[in-house]
Simulated assay, not measured.
Amino acid sequence: MKRKAIVIGAGIGGLSAAIRLKSEGWHVEVFEKVTSLKKTGAGIVLAANGMKALERLGVAGEIRAMGKKVGKAEIRTWDGKILFQLPTKEMAERYGTYSYLIHRASLQKILLDKFDCNGINLQKRISRFFQDKSKVTAVFSDGSAVEGDVLIGADGIHSTIRANLIQKDKLRYAGFTALRGICSFQDERYVLQQGGGFEAWGHGKRFGFSHLGQNRIFWFAAINSPEGREIPYGARKQAAHQHFKGWYNPIEAVIEATDEEAILHHDIFDRKPLSHWGSGRVTLLGDAAHPMLPNLGQGGALAMEDAIVLADYLSNTKDIESANFKYERERIKRTTKMVRHSRKMARMVQMENPIATSVRNRMLQAVPSRVMAARLHWVVGYEV
């Protein structure tokens, strides 16, 4: 008789776990609270470690076809002076793959197709769970329930599973808010064939620009701001123009090329790293376990790494509790380091003081690109 996995959340981590467990012979059901899996979100970068995870899931080819390689990765000042460039070609040769940028909805669709949408249950908001020595039961807000051998909480930064496991666990505001947009745009300095783009860093704000695939540009703006200051639809394009007026060309032009309805706005949060994130037959993965700030571009990759490691442990033993514990012990050191490093990096890239930013910029300009690449090896050189 097949063992059964209950996965809460049909995002990147949940679908990755479902794919991997299904390939190992498990019966998997995925439960998602939304009414439909809409094509929402923005761009997501997949560095070499993420691409290696996607190879394990059997979909790396589809990502390369629908996304766009990061052939250029520049960091500039707000007015366009180069601070450093990552040696993307040399890094691709070292790790066997370029980084890729793809629309989050496209990545989710690829994973959904790999898993088989028939295993997805929509409009299922989990309210609680309980377990004993032989099974775990998830109870949903509509009164229905399902039993399984393991319950995997992949329900994101606002995870209900996490809230049931860990009390008094608060979100931590990053100190900055984000605008994200997608548009069609061309610039002869950042050609489609090469892919990639740049980030420009100012005082308490920065702007990123990169090819997304399918002839589109993804951009983001990170702006220091008090928590909860909403920028409503209809005012987001204007706000972006105000914050980045006079910045490095093509920033103003790409904002102007973006439709108002294509601009998203979110405050940015993480949570304090945990010393443990599971109990018995229940465990967490991805943002439910270790939500982090987006400065390293590793949220999606870490969720896929989690999913593969967890599925491998679960499939190599009949002791579910032991498998969950081993998975947690293997993953917690890397993910904790990533959460802390992402927050440390946020302090550096969102500096407001002009003197401090000037010192930062001079220090970065003095570091050879190969040294910068070497400092990222622990992040992107990992193979799950």
Rank of each mutant, 00 (worst) to 15 (best):
L274R: 15
R343V: 08
P291I: 07
Q242S: 14
G25E: 03
W201G: 01
K38H: 08
A178Q: 10
M66V: 15
S184Y: 04
A154E: 01
C117I: 14
L122D: 01
I82D: 02
D155N: 04
K39G: 02
E328Q: 15
I19S: 03
F207T: 08
S342T: 12
F31A: 07
H266S: 10
S225D: 04
R128N: 14
M345E: 12
S275D: 14
E305T: 01
T336D: 03
C183W: 02
G119C: 03
I44R: 08
K318E: 11
G119K: 09
M51E: 03
F140K: 04
F129D: 05
N316K: 13
P250K: 02
Y327Q: 09
H27G: 05
H377N: 15
K168V: 01
L285K: 08
R340L: 15
F115E: 07
G204F: 03
H203L: 15
G80F: 06
I120W: 06
I102M: 08
N215P: 00
A60V: 14
M348Q: 13
S315M: 09
M345Q: 12
Y190H: 09
L376G: 13
M345S: 07
E352N: 06
L264R: 09
Q167E: 15
I217S: 09
P226F: 00
F198E: 09
T35N: 14
F198P: 09
R172M: 11
K39D: 15
I255W: 03
S225V: 00
A289Q: 09
T77F: 05
K245F: 07
M338I: 13
